[in-house]
């Protein structure tokens, strides 16, 4: 229930953006066009602070980070943009290009194409769209129940019984899908420091077990103090786990 509210709260963040946010967004675009990429990053971040949370903002911010040489933040923001608009081909292309420039050979577990086709709505729709659709089917489900109790026509009643059951299942599917997407994004992180030392425990005094380079994608599994526990999948070999400082990582949500 707590998560459901968190999703709703996140979806509601995307309220009509203020005039200030739109102004900073436009100024960021101008700075980017003039190749003042660092300035563009700052302006896009201000726009985000003012309440703009659109895929276009994350995409532009990622572009500006990429151009200013901050590969890790670029990947994190492309992932954010992808979370809300997974059908944007520009974002997919730029993300792929940024990922190809990372130094560590870390792989994100790819979903088999068959499974991807089966759960196409999960992969095709953004988080916000899934929440909205879940709510739309929620409304339709209750409307079907209302028609069911008010109608005197037996055939209408019978149809509404089936419809309400179907709508309830669809609502659960979309809600479950949105919850999973949210959970996945909240546990996904990107290394934003030039290199991050991964320790055996949640403190710098523990042995350094390996080093991750800027832009490496990791799974965040736990938080303890100022440290987070991460899991990385190497392209060859087993997964590696360890602890690193939370400031060296940017999570997608």
């Amino acid at each position: 229930m707590k998560k459901l509210f968190a999703i709703l709260a996140f979806a509601t963040l995307a309220q009509a953006s203020s005039f200030e946010a739109a102004k900073y967004f436009a100024q960021g675009n101008t700075a980017y066009t003039n190749q003042n990429y660092q300035e563009a990053v700052e302006l896009y971040k201000r726009s985000q602070k003012e309440g703009l949370n659109s895929p276009a903002l994350y995409y532009n911010l990622a572009n500006a980070c990429y151009k200013s040489g901050d590969l890790g933040s670029a990947i994190a923001n492309y992932r954010k943009a992808e979370l809300f608009d997974p059908r944007d081909p520009d974002c997919a292309a730029n993300l792929s290009r940024a990922l190809s420039q990372t130094e560590d050979s870390i792989s994100k577990k790819e979903v088999p194409p068959a499974l991807r086709s089966f759960f196409f709505l999960y992969f095709y729709l953004g988080l916000k769209e899934q929440v909205i659709l879940a709510l739309a089917f929620w409304v339709v489900f209750w409307l079907a129940l209302i028609v069911l109790i008010l109608s005197k026509n037996e055939s209408v009643k019978s149809a509404m019984k089936k419809f309400s059951l179907a709508f309830f299942i669809i609502t659960l599917l979309f809600l479950g899908s949105a919850l999973y997407k949210y959970y996945d994004a909240a546990h996904q992180g990107v290394i934003i420091s030039e290199q991050a030392k991964v320790h055996a425990g949640p403190d710098a005094s523990y042995t350094e077990i390996f080093i991750l380079k800027n832009g490496s994608e990791v799974k965040v599994t736990k938080k303890e103090g100022s440290f987070v526990k991460i899991l990385v999948h190497q392209e060859e070999g087993e997964s590696q786990a360890g602890w690193l400082e939370a400031s060296q990582i940017e999570t997608i949500l």
């Binding site: 709703l8 979806a11 509601t12 995307a14 309220q15 009509a16 953006s17 946010a21 739109a22 967004f25 675009n29 980017y32 066009t33 726009s47 703009l52 949370n53 659109s54 895929p55 276009a56 903002l57 995409y59 532009n60 572009n63 500006a64 990429y66 151009k67 520009d90 292309a93 730029n94 290009r97 940024a98 916000k128 909205i132 709510l135 739309a136 929620w138 409304v139 489900f141 209750w142 409307l143």
Partner: peptide
């Protein structure tokens, strides 16, 4: 990389994601 987007892209669904609207959709039915 591909260039930036000139529109913030928020207006299209902003009314759909308004907090009041979402709470109404959740509680009213």
């Amino acid at each position: 990389i591909f260039g930036i987007k000139l529109q913030s892209g928020e207006e299209a669904i902003s009314h759909m994601t308004n907090k009041k609207f979402l709470l109404l959709a959740l509680v009213l039915p």
